[in-house]
Structures are given as C-alpha cells and as structure tokens.
Amino acid sequence: MKKLFVILLFFSTCLSSYAGNADKFSYNADELQNEFSDLQSLESMFIGNQNLTIADFEQMDIDWLNRIDLENMKCASPVQAMFGVDDMEWGAFAWGFCCSPIGFFLVAISDEKSNNEKLSYWIGVVISSLLGSIAAIANPTPGTSLYTGY
C-alpha cells in the first residue's frame, strides 16, 4: 500500500511538472486579436491601396482609425518599431547590455536614476541575455562575449 502511494505520488509529481512546461507554451489568442484589431484593419486598407500614405489616413474619419495614434506611428522610425532603440538612454542601456550585474547596482536599484534609465537598463539586460545565448551559439568557446560596439 505504501509502495502504491509512493508510485502514485511520483507519477502525479511528474505529471504536474510536465503540464507546467506545456502550459508555458500558450498565449491568449483572443487578447492578441483584440490588441491588434485596429492595426489589422489599417494593414488591410494599406494592402488594398499601397499608394495611401500615413497623411491620407490622418485625413480619414473612421472610427477604428481614430483609435490609432498615427502621429506617433509617423514619428516612430522603423528602427524603433523593429529594435526599440531610438529613445534609449544609451548609458543605462550599455550597463545592462555589457555588464548587467554591475549595472544592477548602478542603475536598477538607484533612486537617482529616472524610470527611462531603469527601463533602458532592463531592456539592455534582456537583449544582452538574448545575445548572450546567441553569442555562445556563434562562438564555440562558452562564456566569451559578443563584441557589442560599446
């Protein structure tokens, strides 16, 4: 009886940990659909007539179009759209990017640093971590870092 209990406990532990990992690979499709429904309409309209410019869209009075911040989109460079680097506090970013453990004390927990700087630090950490993985992949010697240009 004791053995059976141990076996059942073992399997239930295995199953619960296994279900947890599968659960990580899910997202809320409805939330995503709602989040981008206006942009989806904008995309469809542009694909239907590629001569339209953002200025043309600004002059249109359509309900869903009014909910999109076209002015911001116009100013956002594609670099920002793709890499999110335009409004970066570069100093804080570099701390996060190059040496996150030191940066943590200098930027992340310092009261003197602005929210922008702290955010930039964390973006640096995230990108650094992503690049760290990729650098390790690209470089056969684990632990060596990718030249970042800073």
């Binding site: 942009l39 995309e43 542009f46 953002i54 116009k74 956002a76 594609p78 920002q80 793709m82």
Partner: peptide
Amino acid sequence: IAGNKILTIGHVYFDKNIRKIVLDISFPN
C-alpha cells in the same frame, strides 16, 4: 513597452550567400 501600437509593412529579401537582410519598408515611412 510604452503601450504605443506600431504597424510596419514592407518586403524582405535575404540571400544566405550575400548575408544581408534587406527590408524595403513602405509603411509608415
């Protein structure tokens, strides 16, 4: 991260021997 929504539309070209990803963007700029 600031909650701004951005749409970018274009055409991408990639030749693995040339090792350049070229994005010809038509929207928003």
